[in-house]
Design a protein around this nucleic acid. Structure first.
Lengths: 247, 247
DNA sequence: ACAAGATAACTTGTATTTTAGTTTTGACGC
DNA sequence: GCGTCAAAACTAAAATACAAGTTATCTTGT
């Protein structure tokens, strides 16, 4: 029995066991509660949660599709280590999709444009409120703050994607972004300040509101690649969570 | 028993049953051998192939992730109908990723550049040879020709994606492209001529070889959206394979 | 004839058992 | 002491069995 970290938890009743376990494990992995390299044995998980191995298998399959778990046939399933080349790939795809989406703003009707601007503004306010709220009583490194801020950050970028006019933009990013989420979570509050991120967001919003899309695109692209600068210190701190191949 | 189309087939021995069934079904669906709306009952498939429901479930789950199958809990699994908005989304993502990839060619070392050019040229020659080979004895509408040509077409675009320097570009496209493959298959030889596609390919290659990346990008983007022009006639011909929402 | 409710015939979801493949370990021969 | 081979102890894959939800049909009461 290697996993004792996992708290016994009551699942939400109105979903399949498999999807609940998937959501739970995904969160545990992205928040590094379960560290890379950890074996996720079907039997162990099934016994731990008092469920059968069937839904466990299903959950592991989904996680493997997300790139968070590696299933080796007849051997076992393991939490994947983070790979630099994978992160580079994710950055590339994200900026390709997200920048293309934002570029579509050029051809948007002014009514929809205005609506989107309002949603961005409202989101930015919530980000500001959240950051302002951490004064003494709650820490910026707290798991709760990190999760909340990242949710708002996601929402901001989702709105940008909505400029594309298709839901697939954000959906596709979500489906490849799992490993980036791990880095985002690790870096927030420690190697990257939410204030800096928010400044980027504000700047992007400003340019969009001035219909200076090309300038907004420039800032957005840089913003999306900024996370790579935090890669090295994080890796240094937790060398065994990363794959050997560097570069 | 509704599915009688499926031929009894010997699976390749060196893979799990689930993955073999997945590959088989995916092909059958993308080639429209199994038409949209067909119910894929777990029991039926299991009995038909003489296997248990377990690997069938696994295969269906993968197909649902590809967007080819819809699993409705406690009701059944069905081959998804084709949706116009989904196709639009795929086009958007594809051109976002593929054009960004090609754009990276601008910053490529001349050695790698030359290698990529050679691979493109070799691929184009194979495309030409294949098209030339259909004179009388084999038809352009034959399933074999379609599959072969589309494989070469895929390869061409995969090479373009390799300009990005990350495997994720082509991988991501593959993971969202399943529904587009159905349209490509239906349109080839009937509503779109391989000669026209090849002409685009040649043109893109030409521009790349002249280092006129921006011009190549323009042609590539148009090429990727060309498929949408074949959507309407295909839909007219098989109206019940498509979703009602016609946006 | 019609509407409402029970029921039977489906479906997938979950649990349990069996099978088959990998790896490790320990014993045996060299 | 060392290399090899075999068996045991693991793993996931697949088969089987059961539970639970959904839908359509049929009955029954009005």
């Amino acid at each position: 029995m290697k996993i004792t970290i996992l708290p016994k938890c009551k699942f939400n009743a109105d979903a399949t066991i498999a999807s609940q376990l998937y959501a739970f494990l995904r969160r545990q992995i992205t928040e590094s509660c379960i560290v890379p390299g950890t074996p996720l044995t079907e039997n162990e998980l099934a016994m731990h949660f008092g469920i059968s191995r069937q839904p466990v298998r299903q959950a592991l399959m989904k996680l493997s599709r997300d790139g968070l778990v590696e299933i080796i046939p007849q051997r076992g399933s393991f939490v994947k280590k983070i790979s630099a080349s994978n992160l580079k790939g994710i950055c590339f795809i994200r900026s390709a999709i997200e920048c293309s989406a934002l570029a579509e703003a050029k051809h948007m009707s002014s009514k929809n444009y205005k609506q989107a601007l309002e949603r961005l503004a409202s989101n930015l306010k919530r980000q500001q409120d959240l950051v302002d709220s951490i004064d003494g009583n709650s820490s910026m490194e707290s798991a709760d703050f990190r999760a909340r801020y990242l949710r708002l950050d996601d929402r901001f970028h989702a709105i940008l994607c909505s400029f594309s006019g298709t839901d697939m933009a954000w959906e596709t990013i979500q489906s490849i972004n799992a490993n980036m989420d791990r880095i985002r979570y690790l870096s927030l509050g420690e190697f990257s300040e939410p204030e800096a991120l928010m400044q980027d967001h504000e700047c992007i919003y400003q340019y969009i509101s001035e219909r200076e899309i090309d300038k907004a695109l420039e800032v957005l692209r840089a913003h999306l690649y900024e996370i790579t600068s935090t890669y090295k210190p994080i890796r240094r701190k937790n060398i065994d969570w990363f794959m050997d191949e560097d570069k």
